[in-house]
Nucleic acid binder design. Structure first.
Length: 773
DNA sequence: ACAGTATGTCATATT
DNA sequence: TAAATATGACATACT
């Protein structure tokens, strides 16, 4: 249990971080009841307005890491924010509850398969993938195709695919941002953030809006870069116009970006390592020079004021999904394929839809220095044709030199590997923890790493969602079966079962499963004859059975057939006759089967007789001086009292006792059947609800997994972008095999030899393990 | 005539 | 313990 709890907490933190990365602002406090400091602190550093020292303590306690509060200057913030925004731009996969619900409504009839959800007919491939669920391939394909289609939908103005569309855009924007980072940190940011938020909350919003927003911030942000960008009228996505010089500009932007990074994250401790251009750029932009407004705008996304798209429920669901992922992690070894395939698909779809999308832009821009990117796209395009294949290769190419590092890195647990040497992944957390107040530090913090690994695992599980969907399908199909089985296998006798099932349909409408309604039927049946007497007796003052009786009456009233018997006059007359029972045959035994015949016999004589129950007839035959209702419903005392008032023969007494017994039992049987029916109906409802919940959760899970995959892909791209821009003293690019970007514990970004990074990773890994023990 | 359903009844268990 | 109730199983009637 303890470990579970811990796991949960960790997962919570990680997931929250991830969410913030994605762009979802989650208030950790909500989860942890302010025991943990808000994530934004991790991301922004303690200097942020949110200072919850407990966080560190808690973190220490929980994860064994300490985050050392470190005052951060504006630059820090800016860079952090910028990077954070970029990272966010990488991916934002939200599944607003409401939207999900909408899906459910729309989808459930189809079979409520999570996988098939997102894009109905459009993503056939996707659906098939989910249903197949045989392996990662299916999942990969599914997600990729799904996203692609989702984007397409968005492009088309479709609303159904909430999550996917934005991502792509963000993705595109991300690159723009990178290029423009140096240009302007002000106006554009705010707009960006705004758009960001908007997108979050308005996933369904029309594309046009998004387009406007995107354009807005773009234009505001960096005209230079954007001058060359064309906005696709259909897709709303910007793509580089084939204008000579664009590449140069972009390249510059990247350089500057790097410089900014450098400035923001001084190489401090790690300065000993070759920092190449980066280090030279360390002059960077003085934090003071930045307008305060910018900062605020940058921070805004993290601030609570901004609408919190996730309500508690949503948050909880998120957590749960994460937990689920974690639980399922174990199975996944195919993450690589999954991930690669997915990302590839995603990109492919993008490529497909809008060949001129920013991604392309990137490619062209970076081609000079960064071959990997272009390769990526080519790969993606190829993937279009063969979704399942080439995913890995695509990644490989993405990670050009470093076959081992990046490739494996991105595949699963090495999200961090993008930024850190693979080995550092899990390790970095600890060291990085204490002194990573800056956003990036926070992002890439241990938690982040853990998260990432977690995500990876989750993603690896990739097909799990598929399986889940399958399960769900089964479940759905079963639902009917289960219900049926519930009926048939139930110990119910055939008659009972049938009755229950049949009545369920009929009564469901009339009776909201309340006893009263159900009673109506039963009551009508059981007391049809008795009811008449009931009223009569009530007048007489019989009270003992009031409660049940009232129920009964209600029901009898509801029963149309009984209505006409209810009138008092009729009852009175009827009572008279059957109370007196003058014409009844004395010899007729109470249990005599002739009763049925009697009705036929008496048909001609009296219609009322027909209404009488067998016991009533018997009572009349035996000349019982009081009504059956009395016999049945009077409390024992009154009943005995009543009996004592008359001189009754043994036969009469016996009959009376039988009548009472049978009458009570009749009611009991009715109640019993009604209860049974209600139970069945309730179970049915519960099953439906559970199915709904399950499918909803599964859908959410799928969405989250998708978003994670996308985010990973984008982070990878970003990493490569940055790395690819680095040049040594000779102007030569660094080999990914030999160097890796790493975020130091103090938040700085450094370029270090892989060997060193690996060492560190190992070291920290050890530490981490020790602490966790 | 037959199947399915609705009710009643009995035996028995539970409350 | 007795009365009231609940319920499974069977019977009967009706459609």
């Amino acid at each position: 249990m303890l470990s579970l709890k811990k796991y949960f907490t960790e997962g919570l933190i990680q997931f929250t971080i991830l969410l913030s990365l994605i762009g979802v602002r989650v208030d950790v406090d909500t989860y942890l009841n302010s025991q943990l400091p808000p994530l934004r602190e991790i991301i922004l550093g303690q200097s942020s307005a949110y200072t919850q020292t407990q966080f560190h303590n808690l973190r220490n306690t929980l994860d064994g890491y300490g985050i050392h509060p470190k005052s951060v200057d504006l630059d820090y913030y800016f860079t952090a924010r910028r990077l954070l925004n970029q990272v966010r731009a990488l991916d934002r996969f939200q599944v607003p509850t409401t939207e999900v619900s909408a899906w459910l409504v729309h989808r459930d009839p189809d079979g409520s398969v999570p996988g098939t959800q997102p894009s109905a007919g459009i993503t056939l491939e996707n659906a098939s993938g989910l249903q197949d669920g045989t392996g990662p391939d299916g999942a990969v394909r599914e997600s990729g195709a799904e996203q692609g289609f989702g984007e397409e939908l968005e492009d088309l103005g479709a609303v159904a695919a909430p999550v996917n569309g934005d991502l792509t855009k963000e993705d595109i924007d991300l690159i723009d941002i990178l290029w423009r980072q140096d240009i302007d940190l002000g106006a554009g940011r705010e707009i960006f953030d705004y758009s960001h938020r908007q997108k979050e909350s308005e996933v369904d919003k029309e594309l046009s809006d998004g387009r406007e927003r995107g354009d807005g911030w773009r234009s505001a942000g960096g005209q230079v870069a954007h001058r060359n960008l064309l906005v696709d009228g259909e897709t709303g996505e910007s793509f580089p116009a084939q204008v000579p010089g664009v590449e140069d500009q972009t390249a510059l932007s990247l350089e500057e970006c790097l410089r900014l990074l450098e400035a923001t994250f001084p190489f401090g401790e790690n300065s000993e390592f070759p920092a190449a251009d980066v280090s030279t750029l360390s002059e960077a932009v003085p934090s003071e020079s930045r307008p305060a407004g910018i900062q605020s705008s940058l921070l805004s996304p993290l601030l609570p004021e901004t609408e919190s798209p996730f309500d508690l429920e949503q948050q909880w669901q998120d957590l749960m999904s994460i937990m689920e992922m974690q639980a399922m992690e174990v199975n996944n070894t195919t993450a690589e394929t999954l991930y690669n395939g997915t990302s590839g698909d995603l990109l492919t779809s993008n490529y497909n839809l809008a060949p001129n999308t920013p991604i392309n832009q990137n490619v062209s821009l970076h081609q000079a220095s960064l071959g990997s990117c272009s390769q990526d796209f080519s790969l993606f395009s190829s993937e279009i044709e063969s979704p399942s294949m080439g995913s890995s290769s695509a990644l490989l190419q993405l990670a050009p030199d470093n076959s081992t590092g990046l490739n494996t890195t991105f595949s699963s647990t090495n999200f961090s590997g993008i930024f850190f040497p693979p080995q550092l992944n899990s390790t970095v957390n600890e060291t990085g923890g204490p002194e990573l107040p800056d956003p990036l530090g926070g992002l890439l913090d241990e938690a982040m790493l853990d998260e990432i690994s977690l995500m990876d695992l989750a993603i690896e599980e990739g097909f799990n969602p598929v399986q889940a969907s399958q399960l769900e399908e089964e479940f759905d199909s079963d639902s009917g079966l289960s219900l049926d089985s519930g009926h048939s296998p139930a110990s119910l006798s055939s008659s009972e079962a049938s009755s229950s099932s049949s009545s369920s349909s009929s009564s469901s409408s009339s009776s909201s499963s309340s006893s009263s309604s159900s009673f109506s039927e039963e009551g009508a049946v059981g007391y049809s004859s008795d009811s008449e007497n009931v009223d009569f007796e009530e007048a007489e003052g019989a009270v003992g059975y009031q409660p049940e009786y009232s129920k009964f009456c209600r029901m009898s009233y509801q029963d149309p057939s009984q209505l006409h018997y209810l009138p008092y006059l009729e009852h009175v007359g009827h009572n008279h006759t059957y109370n007196m029972a003058p014409g009844a045959l004395d010899p007729e035994e109470p249990k005599l089967p002739s009763v049925g015949k009697k009705s036929s016999k008496e048909k001609p004589s009296e219609f009322l007789d027909k209404q009488m129950s067998r016991d009533e007839h018997r009572a009349r035959a035996m000349k019982i001086p009081f009504t059956n209702d009395k016999i049945i419903n009077l409390p024992v005392e009154e009943f005995n009292e009543l009996l004592s008032k008359y001189q009754l023969s043994e036969a009469q007494l016996s009959l009376i006792r039988d009548i009472r017994r049978r009458g009570k039992n009749k009611m009991a049987a009715q109640n019993c059947r009604k209860r049974k029916l209600d139970t069945i109906l309730n179970l049915e409802r519960d099953v439906e609800d559970l199915q709904r919940d399950k499918s909803k959760l599964l859908r959410e899970k799928v969405e989250f997994l998708k978003s994670i995959r996308q985010m990973k892909q984008k982070v990878q791209n970003l990493y490569q972008e940055v790395f690819g821009r680095l040049r040594d003293e000779n102007g030569q690019p660094y080999s990914p095999n030999q160097y890796a970007l790493q975020y130091a514990s103090d938040g700085s970004v450094i370029l270090i030899p892989r060997t060193l990074a690996e060492q560190q990773a190992r070291r920290q890994e050890r530490k981490q393990k020790d602490r966790r023990k």
